[in-house]
Simulated scan of single mutants.
Amino acid sequence: MPLTYDTIGVDYANLRKPDPRIGALIEGALDDARTVLNVGAGAGSYEPAGKIVTALEPSTEMIRQRPASAALVIQGVAEDLPFDDKAFDAVMGVNTVHHWTDRAKGCAEMRRVATGRIVLLTFDPAHRGAWLIDYFPELAALDDAQMPQIADYAGWLGAVDIAPVPVPHDCTDGFLYAYWRRPQAYLDDKVRAAMSSFWAIGDAADKGLARLKADLDSGAWEKRYGALLDQDTCDVGYRLVTTG
């Protein structure tokens, strides 16, 4: 995760609260691991209770926002993990791989320090089901440019299981596509401020924001996407990657 999070991470902990339903999927994938390394740990989201967790995070701002009850945190990067070989039962990472400068090296480092599973929550850039990209095509282009293809993980980690992560309509974690049933949220500057993708596209978002507001005011959004309002969860492209 680049150190730009020292800027965009302000108030991140309040806007990116871990969703317990997604957390349960991650904890289930970690299985019976006792010691866990959380790479790109941010403000401490999804660090499992009942396990001995060590966090690794490059951003000073993100480290500052970690609660006192959070796991021990070490400042560092995925590509150069400051730990011995086989130091942890499992290694996890949540929405972090696309921020690394060398994904293959970071995955090799995770493999080096783990005796067991590696669990990654990531996004499939081939997924085009989210309505948000109809308003912000720049987001799709950004995903194509920065997100690893799902097939890449097998090349970096060996055999992996890939499972979709359904996002609840009231998801408490404000990642990019979390508000699929709450379109008004994207008009809030504070909500978008916790999304690195909106920072990345900058002023290019203005046209889409104006169109989204107009469609919400006129009812055009609901006419086009109203079927989503009856869904409790939606597959918007997030995937759980787990090694055997």
Rank of each mutant, 00 (worst) to 15 (best):
W131N: 05
S69K: 11
A185L: 13
T242V: 12
V191M: 11
D161T: 15
K17L: 13
Q65L: 12
T115S: 15
A140M: 09
G42A: 11
R21Y: 08
L72F: 13
M92R: 03
D102F: 06
E79G: 12
K223H: 14
P48V: 05
A178S: 15
D170E: 08
V39T: 05
I63T: 02
A151D: 14
T96I: 12
R117Y: 08
K207C: 06
R34H: 14
I8N: 05
R64Y: 11
A13P: 03
I52F: 01
P67W: 04
G155N: 15
V91Q: 00
L72E: 13
Y12F: 15
R182M: 03
N14Q: 14
I22V: 15
H99P: 05
L25T: 04
Q184M: 13
L212D: 02
L176D: 01
V241T: 09
A13N: 06
A178W: 02
A87V: 09
D85L: 05
L142E: 00
N95M: 08
T172D: 11
L121A: 10
I52K: 08
G202W: 05
D102V: 07
L37D: 02
R112G: 10
D232K: 11
I26R: 01
A194L: 04
D206L: 13
A154T: 12
L176K: 01
V191S: 08
R239I: 03
V77Y: 00
W100H: 00
K223S: 13
L212H: 06
W131T: 04
P137L: 08
G50H: 10
V167N: 00
A210K: 15
V73Q: 00
G174E: 02
H169Y: 05
A104V: 07
I63K: 01
D89L: 11
Y238P: 04
W221E: 01
F83S: 02
V36G: 06
W100V: 01
